[in-house]
Design a protein around this nucleic acid. Structure first.
Lengths: 142, 142
DNA sequence: TTTGTTGTAATTAATTTGGTTACAACTGCA
DNA sequence: TGCAGTTGTAACCAAATTAATTACAACAAA
């Protein structure tokens, strides 16, 4: 089981928007060339990022920009923008209520599974787009 | 995106093996009745748990038991037993190496994604089967 | 030898992902 | 106004994954 490549692609897009700000018009076709996926994937992802208030997109004219400072965009913002909102683990639907285990497995396990999901989300919350930009700039000047 | 129900089902199975120890023969059919899935799912899952050294299964005779103390089985043991070993995030395959962003997005993002995965795994490591048994017993005596 | 069980392969349906084509709507410019 | 480039979105397709299910050989105990 894996998360889709949506978060990595969305982060790639955001990094490219920052990197090429003022240098290139970041159209879906241009971004598709950097990410190396179909432009429609870029347009759909940009649409999700726009709906989440992370970017603005110039319809007709073309190009996109950040709607917030990179330090105010965390990976959880990006994750929630592009991934469906749902529990991390799919619980089996119908444990037998006649069985002492089946009757209580939800009560016992749900909060543990939620804690696991929350640990992941907290880590994502601690990483900002600015962190990634700083890391990239360190590499670029080398 | 979700994990499959394999971890919840595996935990359910382990809890049932403990709960019915000495009371019922925990065959795949019996366990299937508690989890409410097809017995083949139980047999496959038990096979994975057995391969990971968490349970023993009596071929022919029927029934299964824990191979380790509940305090020595953590959710990460169960998770690794039943989920394929792979990176949590699927990275898009071919970022453009001619692009300063495409060339470096892996170097920038990989360790962050790994840190997120690791946060999740560390939380799973901190939860033992014994914790779940204790919680279940608290409910059962009420 | 009979019965019940495990282990495993094969098949199926449903869902998700990513790729792709197509095209209407929109913007800026000549 | 009309053209060129772009966004937004729908539709379709192939591949992969999940879970359910049937089937059956191998095995153990009575």
């Amino acid at each position: 089981m894996q998360f889709s490549s949506r978060l990595p692609i969305a982060v790639h897009i955001l990094l490219a928007i920052v990197e090429f700000d003022g240098k290139e018009k970041t159209t879906s076709t241009f971004l598709a060339g950097s990410v190396n996926v179909n432009p429609v994937i870029i347009r759909n992802t940009l649409g999700q990022l726009k709906a989440a208030g992370l970017v603005t997109v110039k319809a007709g004219e073309g190009g996109s920009s950040l709607a917030k400072a990179p330090k105010d965009i965390t990976l959880i913002d990006v994750f929630d923008a592009v991934e469906k909102e749902e529990a991390l683990f799919h619980f089996h639907e119908n444990p037998n209520p006649e069985c002492p285990v089946g009757k209580n497995v939800h009560a016992v396990l749900d909060n543990k599974l939620f804690a696991i999901q929350d640990a992941m989300r907290e880590k994502m919350k601690s990483i900002t787009l600015q962190d990634l930009i700083d890391d990239m700039n360190k590499i670029l000047v080398q």
